[in-house]
Design a protein around this nucleic acid. Structure first.
Lengths: 149, 149
DNA sequence: TACTTCATTGTAATGATTACAATTAGTTTA
DNA sequence: TAAACTAATTGTAATCATTACAATGAAGTA
Protein backbone atom coordinates (compact mmCIF):
# COMPACT_ATOMS: atom_id res chain seq x y z
CA UNK A 1 0.00 0.00 0.00
CA UNK A 2 2.90 2.35 0.63
CA UNK A 3 3.82 1.58 -2.96
CA UNK A 4 0.57 3.11 -4.06
CA UNK A 5 1.22 6.16 -1.92
CA UNK A 6 4.55 6.66 -3.57
CA UNK A 7 3.03 6.23 -7.02
CA UNK A 8 0.33 8.78 -6.23
CA UNK A 9 2.88 11.21 -4.96
CA UNK A 10 4.93 10.89 -8.12
CA UNK A 11 1.85 11.51 -10.24
CA UNK A 12 1.00 14.59 -8.19
CA UNK A 13 4.48 15.94 -8.71
CA UNK A 14 4.48 15.28 -12.42
CA UNK A 15 1.15 17.02 -12.75
CA UNK A 16 2.60 20.12 -11.14
CA UNK A 17 5.45 20.01 -13.62
CA UNK A 18 8.05 18.81 -11.15
CA UNK A 19 10.75 16.52 -12.48
CA UNK A 20 11.25 13.16 -10.89
CA UNK A 21 14.87 12.75 -10.01
CA UNK A 22 16.46 9.81 -8.21
CA UNK A 23 17.02 12.00 -5.18
CA UNK A 24 13.40 13.07 -5.05
CA UNK A 25 12.28 9.51 -5.47
CA UNK A 26 14.50 8.38 -2.62
CA UNK A 27 13.50 11.18 -0.26
CA UNK A 28 9.83 10.51 -0.84
CA UNK A 29 10.26 6.79 -0.44
CA UNK A 30 12.12 7.28 2.80
CA UNK A 31 9.51 9.67 4.15
CA UNK A 32 6.69 7.29 3.33
CA UNK A 33 8.36 4.30 4.88
CA UNK A 34 9.50 6.23 7.91
CA UNK A 35 7.51 6.09 11.11
CA UNK A 36 9.61 8.65 12.88
CA UNK A 37 8.95 12.10 11.41
CA UNK A 38 12.59 12.66 10.48
CA UNK A 39 14.51 15.92 10.37
CA UNK A 40 16.18 17.09 7.18
CA UNK A 41 19.50 15.96 8.53
CA UNK A 42 18.18 12.53 9.41
CA UNK A 43 16.92 12.13 5.86
CA UNK A 44 20.27 13.26 4.55
CA UNK A 45 22.14 10.76 6.70
CA UNK A 46 19.75 7.94 5.86
CA UNK A 47 20.32 8.42 2.13
CA UNK A 48 24.02 9.13 2.34
CA UNK A 49 24.77 5.49 1.67
CA UNK A 50 22.82 5.36 -1.59
CA UNK A 51 23.65 8.91 -2.68
CA UNK A 52 27.16 9.66 -1.47
CA UNK A 53 27.25 12.91 -3.40
CA UNK A 54 23.89 14.27 -2.42
CA UNK A 55 23.97 17.71 -0.84
CA UNK A 56 22.04 18.62 2.25
CA UNK A 57 20.76 21.56 0.22
CA UNK A 58 19.03 19.08 -2.07
CA UNK A 59 17.16 17.62 0.87
CA UNK A 60 15.98 21.05 1.97
CA UNK A 61 15.11 22.12 -1.57
CA UNK A 62 13.03 19.06 -2.19
CA UNK A 63 11.29 19.09 1.13
CA UNK A 64 10.16 22.56 0.18
CA UNK A 65 9.01 21.33 -3.22
CA UNK A 66 7.04 18.53 -1.58
CA UNK A 67 5.56 20.87 0.96
CA UNK A 68 4.41 23.27 -1.74
CA UNK A 69 2.84 20.34 -3.58
CA UNK A 70 0.95 19.45 -0.41
CA UNK A 71 2.69 16.10 -0.07
CA UNK A 72 4.64 16.81 3.06
CA UNK A 73 3.96 18.71 6.25
CA UNK A 74 6.57 20.51 8.27
CA UNK A 75 6.32 20.10 12.03
CA UNK A 76 8.02 22.76 14.11
CA UNK A 77 8.40 22.18 17.79
CA UNK A 78 10.36 24.20 20.24
CA UNK A 79 13.61 22.41 19.50
CA UNK A 80 16.14 23.32 16.91
CA UNK A 81 15.09 21.58 13.72
CA UNK A 82 11.90 20.95 11.83
CA UNK A 83 10.51 17.50 11.30
CA UNK A 84 8.80 16.32 8.16
CA UNK A 85 5.76 14.15 7.81
CA UNK A 86 4.36 12.60 4.69
CA UNK A 87 0.73 13.64 4.44
CA UNK A 88 -1.59 10.66 4.38
CA UNK A 89 -5.02 10.71 5.93
CA UNK A 90 -5.62 13.28 8.61
CA UNK A 91 -3.98 12.48 11.86
CA UNK A 92 -2.62 14.38 14.80
CA UNK A 93 0.50 13.94 16.88
CA UNK A 94 1.07 13.30 20.53
CA UNK A 95 4.56 14.09 21.77
CA UNK A 96 6.33 12.83 24.85
CA UNK A 97 7.54 15.68 27.05
CA UNK A 98 10.37 13.53 28.35
CA UNK A 99 11.84 11.56 25.46
CA UNK A 100 10.42 13.52 22.54
CA UNK A 101 8.93 10.51 20.78
CA UNK A 102 6.06 11.30 18.43
CA UNK A 103 3.05 9.06 18.00
CA UNK A 104 0.19 9.48 15.53
CA UNK A 105 -3.41 9.28 16.55
CA UNK A 106 -6.64 9.73 14.67
CA UNK A 107 -9.43 12.05 15.60
CA UNK A 108 -12.27 13.55 13.64
CA UNK A 109 -11.38 16.98 12.30
CA UNK A 110 -12.06 19.99 14.43
CA UNK A 111 -14.37 21.80 12.04
CA UNK A 112 -16.37 23.16 14.90
CA UNK A 113 -13.32 24.89 16.33
CA UNK A 114 -12.48 26.27 12.92
CA UNK A 115 -16.00 27.60 12.55
CA UNK A 116 -15.92 29.32 15.89
CA UNK A 117 -12.51 30.82 15.24
CA UNK A 118 -13.66 32.11 11.89
CA UNK A 119 -16.80 33.60 13.39
CA UNK A 120 -14.99 35.36 16.22
CA UNK A 121 -12.06 36.72 14.25
CA UNK A 122 -13.40 37.23 10.74
CA UNK A 123 -10.62 35.08 9.28
CA UNK A 124 -11.25 32.83 6.31
CA UNK A 125 -9.98 29.55 7.77
CA UNK A 126 -7.70 27.29 5.75
CA UNK A 127 -6.42 24.73 8.20
CA UNK A 128 -5.43 24.06 11.76
CA UNK A 129 -2.73 22.41 13.73
CA UNK A 130 -3.15 20.38 16.88
CA UNK A 131 -0.66 18.59 19.05
CA UNK A 132 -1.07 16.88 22.37
CA UNK A 133 1.74 16.64 24.88
CA UNK A 134 2.24 14.14 27.67
CA UNK A 135 4.32 11.24 28.87
CA UNK A 136 4.59 8.10 26.80
CA UNK A 137 4.01 4.65 28.33
CA UNK A 138 7.69 3.82 28.31
CA UNK A 139 8.68 7.00 30.16
CA UNK A 140 5.84 6.45 32.61
CA UNK A 141 7.41 3.09 33.48
CA UNK A 142 10.84 4.62 33.98
CA UNK A 143 9.31 7.36 36.10
CA UNK A 144 7.82 4.74 38.40
CA UNK A 145 11.13 2.92 38.62
CA UNK A 146 13.07 5.99 39.70
CA UNK A 147 10.60 7.66 42.00
CA UNK A 148 13.53 9.05 43.97
CA UNK A 149 13.91 12.08 41.66
CA UNK B 1 -5.84 44.98 35.42
CA UNK B 2 -2.58 44.37 33.63
CA UNK B 3 -1.00 45.85 36.74
CA UNK B 4 -2.44 42.98 38.74
CA UNK B 5 -1.11 40.49 36.22
CA UNK B 6 2.34 41.91 36.57
CA UNK B 7 2.11 41.82 40.34
CA UNK B 8 0.97 38.22 40.28
CA UNK B 9 3.78 37.28 37.96
CA UNK B 10 6.34 38.90 40.25
CA UNK B 11 4.93 37.01 43.22
CA UNK B 12 5.10 33.75 41.29
CA UNK B 13 8.71 34.39 40.45
CA UNK B 14 9.65 35.29 43.99
CA UNK B 15 7.99 32.16 45.26
CA UNK B 16 10.16 30.08 42.96
CA UNK B 17 13.23 31.84 44.31
CA UNK B 18 13.83 33.95 41.23
CA UNK B 19 15.27 37.40 41.76
CA UNK B 20 13.45 40.40 40.46
CA UNK B 21 15.80 42.52 38.45
CA UNK B 22 14.93 45.66 36.54
CA UNK B 23 15.45 43.80 33.28
CA UNK B 24 13.07 41.03 34.27
CA UNK B 25 10.53 43.54 35.41
CA UNK B 26 10.74 45.38 32.11
CA UNK B 27 10.55 42.25 29.96
CA UNK B 28 7.50 41.02 31.84
CA UNK B 29 5.84 44.38 31.67
CA UNK B 30 6.45 44.60 27.96
CA UNK B 31 5.12 41.11 27.34
CA UNK B 32 1.97 41.79 29.32
CA UNK B 33 1.26 45.08 27.60
CA UNK B 34 2.09 43.71 24.18
CA UNK B 35 -0.65 42.50 21.88
CA UNK B 36 1.72 41.19 19.28
CA UNK B 37 3.43 38.04 20.54
CA UNK B 38 6.91 39.49 20.10
CA UNK B 39 10.12 37.70 19.21
CA UNK B 40 13.12 37.84 21.51
CA UNK B 41 14.72 40.36 19.24
CA UNK B 42 11.65 42.56 19.21
CA UNK B 43 11.67 42.59 22.99
CA UNK B 44 15.33 43.43 22.96
CA UNK B 45 14.81 46.33 20.56
CA UNK B 46 11.78 47.61 22.45
CA UNK B 47 13.74 47.84 25.69
CA UNK B 48 16.95 49.10 24.16
CA UNK B 49 15.95 52.65 24.90
CA UNK B 50 15.44 52.08 28.62
CA UNK B 51 18.28 49.57 29.01
CA UNK B 52 21.03 50.59 26.63
CA UNK B 53 23.40 48.02 28.08
CA UNK B 54 21.09 45.06 28.14
CA UNK B 55 22.35 42.02 26.30
CA UNK B 56 20.22 39.97 23.97
CA UNK B 57 21.38 36.99 26.01
CA UNK B 58 19.55 38.45 28.98
CA UNK B 59 16.33 38.47 27.02
CA UNK B 60 16.74 34.83 26.05
CA UNK B 61 17.80 33.81 29.55
CA UNK B 62 14.83 35.43 31.14
CA UNK B 63 12.33 34.20 28.62
CA UNK B 64 13.51 30.74 29.56
CA UNK B 65 13.13 31.54 33.25
CA UNK B 66 9.60 32.78 32.67
CA UNK B 67 8.74 29.78 30.56
CA UNK B 68 9.98 27.41 33.25
CA UNK B 69 7.89 29.29 35.79
CA UNK B 70 4.85 28.82 33.55
CA UNK B 71 4.42 32.55 32.99
CA UNK B 72 5.26 32.62 29.32
CA UNK B 73 4.59 30.35 26.39
CA UNK B 74 6.87 29.94 23.43
CA UNK B 75 5.18 29.82 20.04
CA UNK B 76 7.16 28.18 17.27
CA UNK B 77 5.90 28.49 13.75
CA UNK B 78 7.66 27.54 10.60
CA UNK B 79 9.55 30.79 10.35
CA UNK B 80 12.91 31.59 11.83
CA UNK B 81 12.29 32.85 15.32
CA UNK B 82 10.10 31.93 18.25
CA UNK B 83 7.42 34.23 19.55
CA UNK B 84 6.55 34.67 23.19
CA UNK B 85 3.17 35.01 24.77
CA UNK B 86 2.35 35.94 28.32
CA UNK B 87 0.09 33.23 29.70
CA UNK B 88 -3.23 34.63 30.83
CA UNK B 89 -6.47 32.70 30.59
CA UNK B 90 -6.55 29.92 28.07
CA UNK B 91 -6.77 31.11 24.54
CA UNK B 92 -5.75 29.86 21.13
CA UNK B 93 -4.19 31.61 18.17
CA UNK B 94 -5.31 32.11 14.61
CA UNK B 95 -2.57 33.05 12.19
CA UNK B 96 -2.83 34.75 8.82
CA UNK B 97 -1.19 32.67 6.09
CA UNK B 98 -0.46 35.82 4.11
CA UNK B 99 0.71 38.54 6.49
CA UNK B 100 1.54 36.43 9.54
CA UNK B 101 -0.56 38.42 11.98
CA UNK B 102 -1.65 36.53 15.07
CA UNK B 103 -5.02 37.00 16.72
CA UNK B 104 -6.24 35.43 19.95
CA UNK B 105 -9.55 33.69 20.25
CA UNK B 106 -11.24 31.86 23.06
CA UNK B 107 -12.60 28.37 22.93
CA UNK B 108 -13.43 25.85 25.60
CA UNK B 109 -10.53 23.49 26.21
CA UNK B 110 -10.30 20.32 24.16
CA UNK B 111 -10.42 17.85 27.03
CA UNK B 112 -12.30 15.39 24.89
CA UNK B 113 -9.49 15.29 22.34
CA UNK B 114 -6.98 14.86 25.14
CA UNK B 115 -8.99 11.99 26.55
CA UNK B 116 -9.19 10.23 23.22
CA UNK B 117 -5.51 10.71 22.52
CA UNK B 118 -4.64 9.35 25.92
CA UNK B 119 -6.90 6.36 25.47
CA UNK B 120 -5.54 5.49 22.03
CA UNK B 121 -1.87 5.97 22.74
CA UNK B 122 -1.47 5.19 26.43
CA UNK B 123 0.15 8.56 27.04
CA UNK B 124 -0.46 10.46 30.25
CA UNK B 125 -1.59 13.78 28.76
CA UNK B 126 -0.22 17.06 30.09
CA UNK B 127 -1.32 19.67 27.62
CA UNK B 128 -2.08 20.43 24.01
CA UNK B 129 -1.45 23.01 21.41
CA UNK B 130 -3.86 24.23 18.80
CA UNK B 131 -3.53 26.83 16.10
CA UNK B 132 -5.83 27.77 13.29
CA UNK B 133 -4.57 29.17 10.00
CA UNK B 134 -6.37 31.28 7.47
CA UNK B 135 -6.58 34.72 5.91
CA UNK B 136 -7.26 37.75 8.06
CA UNK B 137 -9.97 40.26 7.14
CA UNK B 138 -7.47 42.84 5.98
CA UNK B 139 -5.69 40.41 3.62
CA UNK B 140 -9.06 39.24 2.33
CA UNK B 141 -9.78 42.83 1.31
CA UNK B 142 -6.47 43.20 -0.46
CA UNK B 143 -7.03 39.88 -2.20
CA UNK B 144 -10.30 41.16 -3.59
CA UNK B 145 -8.67 44.40 -4.72
CA UNK B 146 -5.90 42.68 -6.68
CA UNK B 147 -7.77 39.76 -8.19
CA UNK B 148 -5.39 39.97 -11.15
CA UNK B 149 -2.80 37.77 -9.41
C1' DT C 1 21.04 14.31 -31.10
C1' DA C 2 21.01 18.99 -29.54
C1' DC C 3 18.67 22.36 -26.79
C1' DT C 4 16.37 24.28 -23.09
C1' DT C 5 15.35 24.34 -18.58
C1' DC C 6 15.31 22.76 -14.20
C1' DA C 7 17.85 20.18 -10.39
C1' DT C 8 21.90 19.22 -7.88
C1' DT C 9 26.08 20.26 -5.66
C1' DG C 10 29.40 22.56 -2.75
C1' DT C 11 30.30 26.20 -0.27
C1' DA C 12 29.62 30.46 1.84
C1' DA C 13 26.43 33.36 4.22
C1' DT C 14 22.74 34.27 7.38
C1' DG C 15 20.46 34.48 11.54
C1' DA C 16 18.54 32.64 15.84
C1' DT C 17 19.98 30.75 19.91
C1' DT C 18 23.29 29.21 23.40
C1' DA C 19 27.77 28.76 26.01
C1' DC C 20 30.99 30.80 28.77
C1' DA C 21 33.88 33.65 31.62
C1' DA C 22 34.15 38.00 33.84
C1' DT C 23 31.66 41.52 36.09
C1' DT C 24 27.76 43.34 38.53
C1' DA C 25 23.97 43.51 41.54
C1' DG C 26 20.15 41.23 44.64
C1' DT C 27 19.48 39.28 48.97
C1' DT C 28 20.61 37.63 53.48
C1' DT C 29 22.61 37.78 57.81
C1' DA C 30 25.05 39.57 61.44
C1' DT D 1 24.26 49.19 57.26
C1' DA D 2 28.10 46.31 55.65
C1' DA D 3 30.00 42.02 54.31
C1' DA D 4 29.33 37.88 52.05
C1' DC D 5 27.10 34.79 49.24
C1' DT D 6 24.92 33.71 45.18
C1' DA D 7 22.50 34.54 41.14
C1' DA D 8 21.99 37.63 37.09
C1' DT D 9 23.90 40.33 33.43
C1' DT D 10 26.99 41.34 29.84
C1' DG D 11 29.74 40.81 25.72
C1' DT D 12 31.45 37.87 22.76
C1' DA D 13 32.32 33.73 20.50
C1' DA D 14 30.47 29.44 19.08
C1' DT D 15 26.90 26.45 17.27
C1' DC D 16 23.67 24.84 14.28
C1' DA D 17 19.74 24.83 11.08
C1' DT D 18 18.58 26.78 6.99
C1' DT D 19 19.19 29.45 2.73
C1' DA D 20 21.62 31.84 -1.22
C1' DC D 21 24.30 31.47 -5.05
C1' DA D 22 27.05 30.17 -8.93
C1' DA D 23 28.73 26.36 -11.52
C1' DT D 24 27.83 21.82 -13.17
C1' DG D 25 24.88 18.04 -14.44
C1' DA D 26 20.82 15.72 -15.98
C1' DA D 27 15.49 15.47 -17.67
C1' DG D 28 12.47 16.29 -21.06
C1' DT D 29 11.48 17.86 -25.77
C1' DA D 30 11.76 19.04 -30.67
Amino acid sequence: MSGAMLKNALVTLKESGVRITPQRHAILEFLISSETHPTADEIYKALEHDFPNMSVATVYNNLRVFRNAGLVKELTFGDASSRFDFVTHDHYHIICDECGSIVDFHHPGLEEVERLASYVTGFKVNSHRLEVYGVCPSCQEQGKASKAN
